[in-house]
Amino acid sequence: MAFSSNSSGGGPMADINVTPLVDVMLVLLIIFMITAPLMSHKVKVELPQATLDSKPEILVPPVTVAVKSNGEIFWNDEKVNKDLLEARLAVMAQEVPQRQLDIRADNSTRYQIIADVVRSARVAGIRKVGFVSTPER
């Protein structure tokens, strides 16, 4: 408790106790002193600058493989089975320039089915595999 030293009576003292404020500020100072060196990057990398003025023209259209939630596979909207898909992927891998493979799948499609399609594309030698999704709103 703070006691008044003046003789005007026993009224409360109007001074602010700054000790808790100083304690909090010292703790914050120590935290920032420890974390500030961790925020800086140790390795300096000069990133390349983008020089693309316009979108590049797509010379060959991509192939779209759609996978439904029940496991049905469609090659450009034509239903195919696993063997026919692998055969078409092998033919596509031999094309020059190689087209991109776009994979579309339902929201409820199991990941294993999609992974099998991607694995088949990689085994066949497809270098460009993309995933098609709806944009966020």
Rank of each mutant, 00 (worst) to 15 (best):
E86A: 09
Q94A: 11
V18Q: 03
L84Q: 12
M33V: 13
K44G: 06
K82H: 07
L52H: 10
S69A: 15
S54Q: 14
T64K: 08
L84D: 11
K79Q: 08
A66T: 04
P97M: 04
A93D: 02
V80A: 01
V27P: 03
I103C: 00
T64P: 02
T109I: 10
L38D: 02
T64W: 00
T51W: 06
N107S: 08
Q112D: 05
M25L: 13
V60I: 13
T109M: 11
R99G: 04
E72M: 08
I30D: 03
G71I: 02
A66S: 06
Q100P: 08
S69P: 04
N107Y: 09
M25E: 06
V43F: 12
E78T: 15
F74K: 09
V60N: 12
T35F: 11
D77R: 11
K82P: 01
V24D: 03
L29A: 15
I31S: 07
P37G: 01
V60Y: 11
S54C: 12
P62R: 04
E86T: 06
V80Q: 01
P97W: 02
F74P: 03
V96I: 12
D77N: 14
I58L: 10
S54A: 14
P37M: 06
D83N: 09
E95N: 07
T51H: 05
I30C: 10
L47T: 14
T19F: 11
F32M: 14
K79S: 05
V24L: 10
E78I: 12
G71D: 01
V24Q: 03
I31Y: 05
Q100T: 12
Q49S: 11
K82G: 03
V96Q: 15
K68G: 00
P61D: 05
T35N: 06
L38R: 10
D53M: 14
S69F: 12
I103F: 00
